[in-house]
């Protein structure tokens, strides 16, 4: 009820500022106009000048996010486990990763676009870098929080190095991995939009920025709405999957 009220209020403020022409808001579209263009794009009408539909742009962006995030999960989790558990990895590998960590993912865009052979690979790299560190850091910190008694318990039952990994280190750290992945996916979306804006299309970030240049604000608004929606959906997918695979933990999901 209150939720509906809040959304209604938001829509009316939006409508009023566009109608009244507060600052430059008269150049934007009203909620109603936006709804009309959103529905036509959902029905497959070409977005902007390039002629590709919402689905083509969405597909490219989603593909880059999934690939970049997937690569990040596949590398950050093993590295986080290794650097958290083994002194050798922490001493010899972790310091160089720490060197790269403070660089904002978006700042990688120019280098990535130059260094990688294709725009596609450059964008995937930026997404990867954005998603990698939250997952890596959370995994590593999760390992650091393992209570020594769990290790002792498994050793006393006859477990060796591999059993400790399998029965203590990995399961204990899964909730932290999921937390890291949730954050990582959020950053992946930020990174993909920024990279696409600078690199070229197709893609949701590209078409949103391109339409801004052409002052096609209908597309711009629809673009950011779709990006927001997919971003929210993807983090809820991570949380749900996470809750499913950690039935013992109330840290993750609901």
């Amino acid at each position: 009820m209150l939720k509906g009220l809040s959304i209604a209020l938001f829509l009316s403020v939006w409508w009023v500022v566009v109608e009244v022409g507060f600052l430059g808001f008269d150049l934007l579209r009203t909620p109603l106009e936006t709804a009309v263009s959103l529905s036509s794009f959902v029905l497959g009408e070409a977005m902007g000048s390039g002629g590709e539909s919402l689905y083509v742009h969405g597909y490219h962006t989603l593909y880059r996010v999934l690939l970049g995030t997937g690569l990040a999960i596949a590398t950050a989790i093993p590295l986080g486990l290794a650097c958290g558990w083994s002194d050798w990895w922490r001493n010899y590998v972790y310091p160089s990763l720490e060197l790269l960590r403070p660089i904002p993912p978006v700042a990688w865009v120019p280098i990535a676009l130059i260094a990688f052979a294709s725009e596609f690979m450059g964008i995937v790299w930026v997404v990867f870098i954005g998603a990698f560190f939250p997952i890596f850091v959370n995994t590593m910190e999760g390992v650091a929080q393992i209570e020594p008694e769990y290790v002792r318990a498994v050793k006393s039952l006859g477990g060796g190095r591999w059993e400790l990994y399998r029965h203590v280190v990995i399961p204990h750290t899964i909730p932290s991995m999921i937390t890291g992945t949730t954050i990582g996916v959020g950053i992946a979306w930020i990174a993909v939009v920024a990279a696409e804006m600078l690199s070229g299309g197709p893609g949701l970030g590209y078409i949103t920025f391109q339409s801004y240049r052409l002052m096609d604000t209908g597309v711009v608004i629809v673009g950011i709405m779709v990006l927001g929606t997919i971003g929210a959906l993807s983090s809820s997918v991570v949380t749900r999957v996470g809750g499913r695979i950690t039935p013992w933990s109330d840290e993750v999901g609901e």
């Binding site: 008694e149 002792r152 318990a153 006393s156 039952l157 399961p171 899964i174």
Partner: peptide, 14 residues
């Protein structure tokens, strides 16, 4: 040598 701990040390994820 089996150990029973002061604070229960069943693995919570199992």
């Amino acid at each position: 040598r089996g150990v029973v701990f002061q604070e229960n040390r069943l693995l919570p994820w199992k």
